[in-house]
């Protein structure tokens, strides 16, 4: 973990308002594990006291990529960043995705730009499985070629049917599951996206005896475990619950550890 000033190398719009920001961050990028995040101090937002957390999309040598969409105050401001600008960066933060359990079949589940948190995992996986990408509409389906280039089969669903199967991503998963012949292997799922999607994946995982890791998205304060803003309720072995910090113990949790009834 380090706290640095990173220079903007460049920024490009992928499609539909989704941006990729390329940052020169030699003190952080080489240390990023799949599923970890960085905490960004957005320039020109002096009235904002909080940083903004982003999953690391890619880390190649000293270069770190963040994939995001300008939807809030912070992200809209970020769309104006140009080469030569710089920003504050803390990272890498959080506990990322665990390694695939030997003998299990990996599936990735992404809602919208949730795929950004999964790319490094897909690239580091010892075997390729199936990636399920869901979104509202065709522009919300991102970077399919990049995952296919890594050897992953990508199944696409959109709610309006403008790309892939019409419907939500879990319908796609259900259809695949009914027909799948995994030759006795169990599934290990890795999911990042809206909370309702994570919960739907968790329900399937618990019913079908999958291991399922979900990366939760919480309002975050400090990003390092001090402020206790980003807590979520998790189960304890004695049947009770306790708060865990999504910035420190998370953002990745095994789905059985989360108290979904409180979500």
């Amino acid at each position: 973990m380090d706290c640095v000033t990173a220079n903007v190398i460049h920024q490009e719009e992928v499609q539909g308002g989704y941006q990729v920001l390329f940052l020169d961050a030699p003190a952080i990028a080489p240390h990023v594990q799949p599923g970890q995040f960085v905490h960004v101090r957005v320039p020109h937002m002096e009235e904002s006291v909080l940083r903004r957390p982003f999953s690391v999309y890619r880390a190649d040598g000293p270069v770190l990529q963040i994939l995001y969409k300008g939807v809030g105050k912070g992200t809209r401001t970020m769309t104006y960043l140009r080469p030569g600008d710089s920003l504050g960066l803390i990272g890498p933060l959080g506990r990322g995705w665990p390694r695939l359990t030997e003998g299990r079949f990996p599936i990735l589940v992404a809602g919208g730009y949730g795929m950004a948190a999964l790319y490094l995992l897909a690239r580091s996986m010892p075997m390729q499985g199936i990636a399920f990408f869901g979104g509202k509409s065709a522009p919300d389906i991102l970077c399919v070629n990049e995952f296919e280039a890594l050897g992953w089969e990508v199944q696409i669903s959109t709610q309006d049917g403008s790309r892939g199967t019409r419907g939500i991503v879990t319908h796609c998963i259900d259809a695949w599951w009914q027909a799948a012949d995994l030759k006795g292997r169990q599934v290990e799922a890795y999911a990042c996206g809206p909370n309702a999607m994570l919960q739907a994946v968790a329900e399937r995982a618990m019913a079908r005896d999958w291991v399922a890791w979900v990366s939760v998205d919480r309002n975050m304060g400090c990003g390092v475990g001090a402020c206790l803003t980003c807590v979520l309720k998790t189960r304890t072995p004695d049947g009770g619950w306790r708060w865990q910090r999504s910035c420190k113990e998370g953002p990745v949790f095994e789905c059985r550890d989360i108290c979904w009834e409180d979500e």
């Binding site: 002096e46 009235e47 904002s48 006291v49 909080l50 919480r218 309002n219 304060g221 402020c227 206790l228 803003t229 807590v231 979520l232 306790r242 708060w243």
Partner: peptide
């Protein structure tokens, strides 16, 4: 244990 979520909200030049 502390309070339920949400626990913080960013405001103009404040938290």
């Amino acid at each position: 244990r502390g309070n339920e979520n949400p626990r913080t909200a960013e405001t103009a030049s404040g938290l």
